[in-house]
Each structure stands twice: as structure tokens, then as C-alpha cells.
Design a protein around this nucleic acid. Structure first.
Lengths: 387, 387
DNA sequence: CATCGCCGGTAGAGCGCTCTCCCAGATGGC
DNA sequence: GCCATCTGGGAGAGCGCTCTACCGGCGATG
């Protein structure tokens, strides 16, 4: 505490303290002194930011014409365009989005909703684990697709009914145009609410219940097959699976895809235990499976966190990874990549998937008649040290 | 709002056709067929969401009165309040934020800016690693403080000059009221731009250059001292440090705090190498340090990712952790907590720090005269398997 | 009893923008 | 050559909200 250099902070006098600065020209920033003098007709606009009106006056055209230039709505003669653009630059005009969206009924914003269940709040924290790199990757991917289209994401967390109402009303108020939804629980009512309210939305992963909503997903079954084939190829014979909660479609698909592929190789029966995608649940599930099948030599976990938990449990019970047991995860998260030995994992291209979500939403916004669509990505297997 | 007893509402006869008006209330969505016929005065409001005007008509009061009830600005007689609230409920009114912020010049939103340098874009990806759990934790912490105050964060990434302009103009447009800044590079021009533009902003970690801007930080020197004392206590004698880029204040403080404490224990000289907070840079730095000091038995890395990289390098060179070498990281990220053996690390309470940032910004917004402040958090040492 | 707050309400002027009219002038078909 | 068409610009009406005036009524005051 003692070592913060508060002394390093210069006196606030360096700051344009409110009043004085306000007197100056309404430039957002820049050489305040270089205010365009001689703009004889400028009647002392001391207010805030320059408006369309100001630009129009300077350019000697009407407000409508400036608006047209700014939005490129109708053809405007080239020379007039130049004059207007020049004027925009000199007054430092930047459109007021509130005013614009008041009339267009559109904001250049979408909400990104991370939706979880509230019951989990019992353990003190929330049901959504933001420390999971998954969320960062999703948001990062969206950002990369949204930014070029000048759309900014508003982040919202939906755990309680109140939260969900907030989301819905943000959308219906025209606070945002559409929603990108990452729902972590099967019984999340939000997707249905969104559809019911007629709000454009795209979901990460197939909705748990059939719903006319666009989504992107990874071919979960194929990914699980990859894992199964890999374990078989490694010569593993006593193979078990740690699945996610089976009401989540992705978890179900991963498990059944895994089972299918193993069946193809003669494994009629695959012991499995369900976790809930957390590290701790991976530990527990692995423990249970070890009791059930002490000779286990291959494990597939439906995500990396549980795989790491499984490795932890295996170690505690004296098994060596990968010598005694091969472990394969799902997600290819940085957690697995940086653990030692590196975790073999089924990679889903989360960033690309998130970017695709954004693209779908943007397209839907541009053309509301668009049918709901889904895009499925192919997973790949990333082999590292645990197998 | 939910529990106002409508029983308290006086008979509608007190009001100019309160009852009749209710019939023709425009509902947000619902039975179009059941449109009220003979709506004598209602001028065909088939449009979108109900407005203040609609509420006023139903409640039999003026627009201004409804506004007052909604915003609680001036005292309004209790019975009238009840009637208005009732009307709001029946028409399903929800204020249009664009219209509101057009006049108030306030949006209930802040931008969260993750700011990085653009040079790093050479490696194909961006300079900001969203997979780093750090960002998720920061955003999660902010969310938790923002949500109760009904403020939503708009997420922006600032890597290029264009991005930075977007941030500044979002702020000056009244797209958002203030900024929460997470800057990952010392030479980031954004903090200065924000100050220059007079925008309320709070930064995570002390600005690299003296700037009148509020910030929260962890007592980096104290944290590093904790690590040093711990290594000494473990009986380590050949201790080295992997620092962050030394133009970043936090990196500098961590290194010098570490050196100070070791000096106190007789280590006049601590070999060190600088990384850039990535896993790979941790590997490289450790390799260099091993060349320099082959007998190393203690390592302090300025963040967990580099610590993990160091462990990787140590293993590659035949050292066993923690048997031969103790390793201590900084951050207490989930990466370290889930690795095996668990990474001993200096914990900074990221979530709380982020929440405090949000609080400071909100307070500044409420009272613009507020001085810039800083809040420094105390770190703690979390001992796990690597030491 | 006229006067003076003061309380509780209404009226209406914008906030900055878009967009639908409308109009002047240039083009073109018959 | 005349009317229809088109093209590029202006005028002005709002979008839904807040907020400053203003105003009627009413109890307290001199």
C-alpha cells in the first residue's frame, strides 16, 4: 500500500477544468487555440459538440444535404460533397448517435448476453465463470467481426429474471439492435424469451430446446469421434468418458459421438460419468470412474477443465499420464495448452465461431426477412502430451 | 414497483376519462385483431412501443407528470403516482433511452476499453490475448459493480489509431459516459488522449506516464516481497527473476520489490530477464537465466503465464519443480491454479479491483468535480505445489 | 382580507438527427 | 416544342424525452 507514488500525479491544473474549456470551440480535442476565426457567420455556438446544423452553415448547404453526405443515402454532387466533408473536418463534427437512433430506431450496438442459471449463486460467486478463457475467446472473436462494421457489443450478464428483463427491455428500447447469446445452461429461459419478443438473436451452440433461432456450433459428434479414434489408435482398451450435463445438447452429442466411434471399434459399452464442465466436477467424475473401472487406460472429457480435473484425480490415485492413461479433452483452451504435459484436445474454432455469430446477426439486422440459419464448424484434434 | 397496491388508487372518476382511455392503450405486442374500435381520440397509434404520451393519456395526466413519476425528480402526489404507475404497467411502457439521452446528454453506459499496441499484429493475431483469463476476470468484476447501478459496459478494443478515435468519439458523442481502461502496453497513447479530451476514465494499474487519471492497482512491490520472502523461507539460495517489460510500471515495481526483499536477506544481486507476460516469453527468459545461473533453485515470474513457461523450460532442461527449483508466479490466475503441480502465486484481487474501478468511475460521473483518486489493493501469497 | 410563498400540476420548447415531401432545373421521348 | 421523367437540393415535420417556465389553488401571514 505504501508504495504508490501519489506524488507522481501532477496537479489537476493541467486539466482543462470544465468552465474554461467549454468556452472554447466545440472541438472534441486538438489545438484549441486554432479555432477557425473569420468564419463570420458562426453565431457563437458555445454549447457542446458541433451539430449537423453547424456543418451545414459552414458548408453553406442545408442540414439535409450534410446528412446525405454523412450517410451516403442519395447521390450528392461531388463538389458539394467535398465542401461538406471539408466543413465536417473543420468543425470537427461527429454525429450524435442518440439523435440518430431516436429517428432511425436503430443503434449501432448489439448486446452480448452471457446467460447462466442463478441457483449456482449459492457458492458465493456467480454461475458464470468469467475466468474461463472460453468467454474471452468468444468475446474476442465477436469483437473482431463487429469492429469492421462499426458495431459495438454491450455486455450483459443474465442470471436472474431481473437480468433477463433488463436484456429484453434493452432490446425493445432500442438500446441495442440484436443479441448474441452464450447460454451455459439447458434450462435457460432467455432464448425462448428472445424469440417470443421477436428479437434478432444468434446463439452459441444449438439451443437445448427446438427454437427458431440462428446459431453456430461445432460438429460435436465428429469431434468426439476424433477423440475416440485417437485413443483407439494409441492402443487404449479400457476407455471411459466424462460427459457434460446431459440436458445440454453439446454434451449429449459429444458423449454419443464418442460412444458410436468406440462401438465401431468393438467397444460395446463405455463407462461414463457426467460432470458440469468445471475442474472440480472432473475430479469427482474421474474418481467415480476409477472405482468402476480401475484398469482404465483412456479418458475422454467433454471439455478441458474437466480433463484437467481428471488428470488431477488420476495422479492422486497413482496413475501416470500419459504413461498409464491417455487423456483427451475438448475445447483446446489455453488452460490445456499451457498445462504440463500439454493436454490433447479436440479443438473447436471458438473465435471463428463467435465471429460467424456476429456476421449472422449483422446480416439478419440488415435483412430482417432472412431465415434463421445455423453454421456448423468442423473440429480438429490437437495432439499434445497427455495421450 | 412490483408491489404497489392498486387498491390504493382512487376511483378513476377523479380523472378525466381515465377508464375509457385504458381501453385504447397501445400494447407492445398482442392481439392486433382486438383493436379498440371507436377510439374517438386515439390517432391510430399502431406504431411501435408505447411512449410517455400514451401513458399520460391513459393515466389522464400530462406527459411531464409521467416523466416525473418515472424519474422521481419532483414530488408528485401519491395517488397520482399510483395511477401513473398503473398506466405504465397496463401499456407496458419502457422509456426510450435514445430520446432520453438526447436531452440529458447522458447514456447509462460506459465503455470498457482493452487497449493494446498494434505492432504485435505481425503474428497474425491481435496484441490482446483474450484467452488470458485476466480479461474475463476484469470484465466480470466490472459487471458485478455496474449491474446494480443499471449501467452496461460497451466493450471496445483499441489497437490502432482508428480504434482509439472510435473510442474518443464514442465518448464525445454521448455514446457512453466514461471509460474503464485496461491498457496492456506502456506506450499506449489512449490514456493521454482520454485525459486530454476531458473524459472521465479510470485505469487498471498505474499509468505508465504521470497522468491525472484515477486508477486502481495492487501493491506490486509488496506482492513481489511476499514472493521473495517465501523463496528465502523455502531455503532457496540461487534465486532469479523473470520480469515483465520494464517500461510497464507494474513490471518495474514487481522486479524492484523482489530485489529489495532479497537484498534484505543478503542477496545483493538477482539475475533477471524480461519477458512480455506471455507463456513463450517465459520459456525464453528461463532458458537465458539457466545459461547464466545453472544452479538456480528459485524463480519468481511477474505473472503466471511466464511462470508456467519457466516451468516448461526448467523441465526441458531436466530440472524438477518443486524438488530442484521453486517457482512463484503473480496473478493467481486459473491457469496456475489448475496446472499440476499447482502454481504458487501472488494473488491480486482482480475482480475486486475491477469492481472498484467501476465504482470510482460511477462516482466521478455522479460528481464531476471529484478529484482523481487511486486505490491500491494488498496482494496475498497463495502457496501451492511449485514451491 | 389582500398577499405571499409553495405545492402540484400543465404547456411547450427544444435535444440533433433523418426522411418525406416539394421544387428547380436538366433530359428525353414523341 | 411540350409534357413526362429524373436528378440534386431545401424545408420542415417529427422521433420520445426532459425541463424550464408558468399557473391555479391553498394555507399561512401581516
Amino acid at each position: 500500500m505504501g508504495d504508490d507514488r501519489s506524488g507522481a500525479v501532477p496537479p489537476a491544473d493541467d486539466l482543462p477544468h470544465g468552465g474554461a474549456a467549454t468556452l472554447e470551440a466545440p472541438r472534441p480535442h486538438g489545438d484549441v487555440a486554432a479555432r477557425p476565426v473569420g468564419s463570420g457567420e458562426t453565431p457563437e455556438r458555445t454549447g457542446g459538440a458541433p451539430t449537423l446544423e453547424d456543418v451545414a452553415r459552414v458548408a453553406g448547404v442545408s442540414r439535409a444535404t450534410v446528412s446525405r453526405v454523412v450517410n451516403g443515402k442519395r447521390r450528392v454532387a461531388q463538389d458539394i460533397q467535398d465542401v461538406v466533408r471539408q466543413a465536417i473536418a473543420t468543425v470537427g463534427y461527429v454525429p450524435n448517435l442518440a439523435a440518430r437512433s431516436l429517428v432511425t430506431r436503430r443503434t449501432g450496438a448489439v448486446v452480448v448476453v452471457v446467460s447462466g442459471a442463478e441457483e449456482a449463486a449459492a457458492d458465493g460467486s456467480s454461475s458464470v465463470d468469467f475466468a474461463d478463457p472460453f468467454f474471452g475467446r468468444v468475446v474476442g472473436g465477436m469483437l473482431r467481426a463487429l469492429r469492421p462494421r462499426d458495431v459495438d457489443p454491450i455486455l450483459m450478464l443474465a442470471e436472474t429474471d431481473a437480468d433477463r428483463n433488463r436484456v429484453i427491455s434493452a432490446l425493445s428500447n432500442g438500446n441495442a439492435d440484436g443479441a448474441l447469446l452464450v447460454s451455459t445452461h439447458a434450462e435457460d429461459p432467455l432464448p425462448a424469451l428472445l424469440v417470443e419478443a421477436g428479437m434478432p438473436a444468434v446463439q452459441f451452440a444449438r439451443p437445448a430446446h427446438p427454437l427458431p433461432m440462428s446459431y453456430v456450433d461445432v460438429a460435436n459428434r465428429d469431434g468426439a469421434r476424433l477423440a475416440a479414434a485417437h485413443l483407439v489408435e494409441r492402443g487404449r482398451r479400457r476407455i471411459v468418458a466424462i460427459s457434460g450435463p446431459l440436458d445440454v445438447p453439446a454434451a449429449r452429442d459429444r458423449l454419443s459421438g464418442f460412444e458410436d466411434e468406440l462401438a465401431r471399434h468393438g467397444h460395446a459399452w463405455v463407462p461414463s460419468a457426467a460432470g458440469n464442465f468445471t475442474f472440480a466436477s472432473g475430479v469427482v467424475a474421474m474418481d467415480r470412474l476409477l472405482d468402476q473401472e480401475p484398469a482404465v487406460d483412456g479418458v475422454f472429457a467433454s471439455n478441458d477443465l474437466m480433463a484437467l480435473g481428471a488428470i488431477e484425480a488420476l495422479h492422486a490415485r497413482g496413475r501416470h499420464v500419459p504413461h498409464d492413461v491417455s487423456v483427451v479433452g475438448f475445447d483446446d483452451s489455453s488452460l490445456g495448452a499451457h498445462s504440463r504435459p500439454g493436454l490433447t484436445s479436440v479443438r473447436q474454432p471458438i473465435e471463428e465461431m463467435a465471429a460467424e455469430m456476429a456476421r449472422i446477426l449483422l446480416d439478419t439486422l440488415a435483412d430482417p426477412e432472412r431465415r434463421v440459419t445455423s453454421v456448423i464448424f468442423e473440429p480438429t484434434l490437437v495432439v499434445r502430451g497427455t495421450s
